Amino acid sequence: MIEWPEGEEAPTKYWFSTLPANVGFRQLVDIAKLRWRIERDYHDLKQEVGLGHFEGTHPTTAAQRLRARIDGLGYDGR
């Protein structure tokens, strides 16, 4: 799938898909855009909560640090 906005000299985005051939174009567009929203939300979450600091950390240590950070934000889990 290629996104080529009107007035642009060349396409601005490209997507490759391994979805079945019977997936309609509208659904293909929705799925492509959904992935972008998920990636954007993940990026925002990393910035807000500081998840980027946990890369390469042992999962137990990362969970403890994340719990401490969430506690610091005042979230009590209820």
Rank of each mutant, 00 (worst) to 15 (best):
Val49Ile: 15
Ala62Ile: 03
Asn22Glu: 06
Asp41Ile: 13
Gly77Leu: 12
Asp44Phe: 08
Glu8Asp: 13
Phe25Pro: 02
Thr18His: 15
Val23Lys: 04
Phe16Glu: 09
Leu45Ala: 09
Glu8Asn: 11
Ala10Val: 07
Ala68Gly: 14
Ala32Tyr: 01
Phe25Lys: 04
His43Gly: 11
Arg78Ala: 10
Trp36Glu: 07
Gln47Val: 14
Lys13Ala: 06
Ile31Ser: 00
Glu6Arg: 03
Leu34Lys: 11
Pro5Val: 07
Gln47Trp: 10
Asp76Ile: 13
Val23Met: 03
Gln27Met: 13
Ala21Cys: 06
Phe25Gly: 10
Phe16Val: 08
Thr61Val: 12
Lys13Leu: 01
Ser17Thr: 08
Leu34Trp: 14
Asp76Thr: 15
Asp30Ala: 12
Lys46Trp: 06
Gln64Gly: 11
His43Phe: 14
Glu8Val: 05
Glu55Ala: 10
Asp76Cys: 11
Ala32Ser: 10
Arg40Lys: 04
Lys13Asp: 03
Phe16Cys: 11
Glu8Gly: 04
Pro5Lys: 11
Thr57Gly: 07
Arg69Glu: 14
Trp15Leu: 01
Phe16Asp: 04
Pro11Arg: 02
Ala10Arg: 13
Tyr42Glu: 05
Ala32Asn: 03
Val49Tyr: 01
Ile2Asn: 01
Thr57Met: 14
Met1Ile: 05
Ala10Ile: 04
Gln27Arg: 10
Gly52Pro: 01
Glu8Gln: 07
Arg26Ser: 09
Arg78His: 09
Thr57Trp: 14
Gly56Val: 04
Trp15Met: 02
Ala10Cys: 07
Lys46Cys: 12
His53Asp: 05
Asp30Met: 04
Gly74Ile: 11
Phe25Leu: 08
Glu6Gly: 05
Glu39Thr: 07
Gly50Gln: 08
Gly72Glu: 13
Leu73His: 05
Thr12Ser: 04
Glu55Leu: 13
Ala10Thr: 12
Arg40Pro: 00
Lys13Asn: 05
Asp76Pro: 00
Tyr75Gln: 08
Lys46Leu: 05
Lys33His: 09
Arg35Leu: 04
Lys33Asn: 12
Gly24Ser: 06
Thr18Leu: 09
Thr57Arg: 09
Leu45Pro: 01
Asp30Ser: 12
Thr18Gly: 12
Asp44Ser: 09
Ala68Asp: 08
Pro5Tyr: 01
Gly56Phe: 03
Gly74Ser: 14
Leu51Lys: 00
Lys46Val: 10
Gly72Met: 11
Trp15Asp: 00
Leu45Asp: 07
Ile70Gln: 03
Ile70Pro: 05
Ser17Asp: 09
Asp41Lys: 06
Phe54Met: 03
Gln27Pro: 03
His43Leu: 15
Pro11Cys: 05
Glu9Lys: 03
Lys33Gln: 06
His58Ile: 05
Phe54Ile: 02
Ile38Cys: 14
His58Ala: 06
Gln64Asp: 14
Ile38Gly: 12
Gly77Pro: 00
His58Met: 04
Pro11Asn: 05
Leu19Ser: 13
Ala21Gln: 08
Thr60Met: 11
Leu51Arg: 02
Arg78Pro: 02
Ala10Gly: 09
Trp36Ser: 07
Gln47Gly: 06
Arg65Pro: 01
Trp4Cys: 15
Thr57Gln: 08
Gly72Asp: 14
Glu3Asn: 15
Leu45Trp: 07
Met1Lys: 13
